[in-house]
Simulated assay, not measured.
Amino acid sequence: MRLTRTHGASIAAVVLALLFAGGAVTVASAEREEAPATPVSDSADAGFARDMSVHHQQAVEMSFIVRDRTQDEEVRRLAYDIANTQANQRGMMLGWLDMWGLPKVESGTEPMTWMGMEAHGDTGPLDGALMPGMATKTELDRLRKATGKDAEILYLQLMTDHHKGGVHMARGCVDKCSVEIERNLAQGMVDAQESEIALMVDLLKARGAKPRD
């Protein structure tokens, strides 16, 4: 299984660029009326695009790992869907940053500060987990070494946590972002990932397991 995520992301970014050029950047509520037409670097729009791009990249990575660790068609199909969807969404968000003339990485700024919070406070990243829900380096190593049912269960547990963190962040953009098309994407993430969480609960149950607390 080989994803053409680069091509898909490029096409999506071009389409979105045309939408923006045609005036798709809008302000939808009174609270957002003072927002600039083009987001600035410390805006919720830019912060969400940066942070969710990083978050999505790990989901793609985990999905490729489990693809090679199991032959179970249900899990492989879910992993493909997640990898394909999130790789394309990541391309969109990085494309927006390019169109806005903003850096994809902002040094000195902690993840999720645009939400009015820090991902880890004063403790720093925990074993490489940059944001809530993200897997640690140790967990990724365990996934790489697991096989069969063990790999399926660990992937489903890690991805459930990952989706919960993603939903929390996406809801933050729905509330705070000024660009309508970006808020719509964030709401779509909430809806899709909540549905996938429910599916993963069922897949875990079928394997005699459950999500982690």
Rank of each mutant, 00 (worst) to 15 (best):
M1H: 15
M1A: 09
V14T: 15
V15L: 14
L16A: 06
A21C: 06
A21S: 10
V25H: 10
V27H: 13
R32S: 15
R32Y: 02
A35H: 00
P36Q: 02
A37L: 15
A37Y: 03
P39G: 03
D42Q: 08
S43L: 06
G47W: 07
R50L: 11
S53Y: 07
Q58H: 06
A59S: 08
E61L: 06
V66M: 05
R69A: 11
T70L: 05
R76E: 02
D81G: 08
T85S: 13
G91E: 03
W100F: 13
P103T: 08
S107N: 12
G108Q: 05
E110H: 06
E110A: 14
E110W: 08
M112A: 06
G116P: 01
A119R: 02
A119C: 00
G121D: 03
D122W: 04
P125G: 07
P125D: 00
P125W: 04
D127G: 06
L130K: 07
L130A: 15
L130Y: 00
G133W: 07
G133L: 00
T138D: 09
L140Q: 14
R142M: 12
R142V: 02
D150Q: 11
A151T: 01
Y155C: 04
L156D: 09
L158G: 13
D161Y: 02
H168A: 15
C173F: 12
V179D: 11
E180I: 10
I181Y: 10
L185E: 11
V190T: 09
S195T: 11
I197C: 06
L199W: 09
M200N: 04
V201N: 12
V201Y: 12
D202R: 15
L204K: 08
L204R: 09
K205E: 15
A206N: 12
A206C: 06
A206S: 13
G208K: 13
G208I: 14
G208M: 14
